[in-house]
Computed example of a mutant assay.
Amino acid sequence: MKGVLLVNLGSPESPTAKDVKPYLDEFLMDERVIDVNKVLRNILVRGIILQTRPKKSAKAYAKIWWDEGSPLIVLSERFSEKLKTHTDMPVALGMRYGTMTIKTALQELNDKGVDEVLLVPLYPHYAMSSYETVVVKTMDVQKEFFPQIHLTTLPPFYHNSEYIKALSQSITDGLKDFEYDHILFSYHGIPERHIRKSDPTRYHCKIDGSCCHINSVAHHTCYRHQVYETTELVKAELGLDETKVSSSFQSRLAGDPWLKPYTDYEFERLAKEGKKRLAVITPAFVSDCLETLEEIAMEGKEQFTEAGGESYKHIPCMNDSDTWVQVMADWVNAWEETGALPSN
């Protein structure tokens, strides 16, 4: 019997330092998030970061927390429930970090007699710290606790035509009644070294754009290439003016070079160049979360207006939109019927 396992990032149990601390500990101690040796990672995370970060992060979570709970969890649950109405297969939802675990979700499917699972990492693009860690963690849990279950993994869908159409529709809906001077595609940032580590050829990725125009197997795991490809495909789908669209990267840490340009720098640059009305979309996520709702929707607006901007529009993620649910339903049902996975 076949079933579907959806996996998203996760969330603390509450917007309090007490609950944020263990969540951050699990997240930051992931070797695919902070990719240094375990001893150094332990000193950095538990000796330094967790001494101050939980209180700061708790305040940020409190700003975006809903009555129903964490926006990411609520939106993921809504998406999961809608998907269940579009397929005959059991659907379970798990999180990479936090108490809503992948193990619990797999147990739910196992209890329903599922022995073939389609793993759906809810990330459009491949990155060590998002897509890859979900896949590796799920495989580890499956091997240890559910050896009878066979896993098939949905590949990154950043350039799938149906995904691009759904994302484009989401942007169109978000731009309704908003006259913009510029649209900024702001993607989650990662260290440049992650790009090099993910390059199976060990030589292709130059992180300067030149390599993106040369067809290579490296593109299958290159986050930078994939996000820029998403921007280009949406531009083409919507017929956007080349001069009114750009891409950037948010959420960096000090000490190492991360992918550029940085989103907060772009807010200032665009405002000072006379872009008064800015729309921002965050396509690295399919569900709104702390990073989109607090860092971009709130802090981003403040940064842009302080630099001279006048109007700011954060376009929500696709979340549980009917269009996005239908796209996912088409993918999982095709897999159930024929074993086929989404094509480009």
Rank of each mutant, 00 (worst) to 15 (best):
D19W: 04
W331H: 11
V332W: 11
F185M: 09
K235D: 01
V20Q: 01
K275P: 07
N37S: 13
A307T: 08
L118D: 01
S168L: 03
D256V: 07
G209C: 00
Q250E: 02
S129Y: 11
G47A: 05
E242M: 04
P156I: 10
K260N: 11
R78A: 07
V134L: 03
G300R: 04
N42R: 12
E302N: 09
H182Q: 14
D264S: 14
D322E: 14
I164R: 00
H220G: 01
F79H: 15
E336A: 15
K244D: 02
L72K: 03
M128W: 06
D140A: 13
L238Y: 01
S246P: 11
L278G: 08
E132Q: 15
N333Y: 03
Q107S: 14
D19G: 01
R78P: 07
V33H: 08
S247D: 01
K176C: 06
F27I: 06
T104Y: 10
M95N: 14
G94R: 08
K55I: 03
D177M: 05
Y131F: 11
E13H: 09
D88E: 15
G113E: 07
C212Q: 09
S287P: 06
T138W: 07
S311K: 15
L278P: 00
S287M: 11
A297Y: 05
V20N: 07
V327I: 10
L154Y: 08
S14W: 08
A297T: 04
H194E: 09
E266R: 14
E337F: 06
L50A: 08
L119C: 02
A166N: 09
P147S: 04
L50D: 06
L253A: 08
N160S: 12
P316C: 02
Y265G: 10
R53M: 06
A62C: 02
E295W: 11
V327E: 05
A166D: 06
L83F: 08
F267P: 00
L167S: 10
E68V: 00
N8W: 05
G308I: 03
A127G: 06
Q148H: 12
S129D: 12
P121F: 09
S129H: 13
E31G: 15
I73L: 15
K38G: 03
D177H: 10
Q226D: 01
Y158G: 00
S170Q: 15
A271M: 10
Y228G: 14
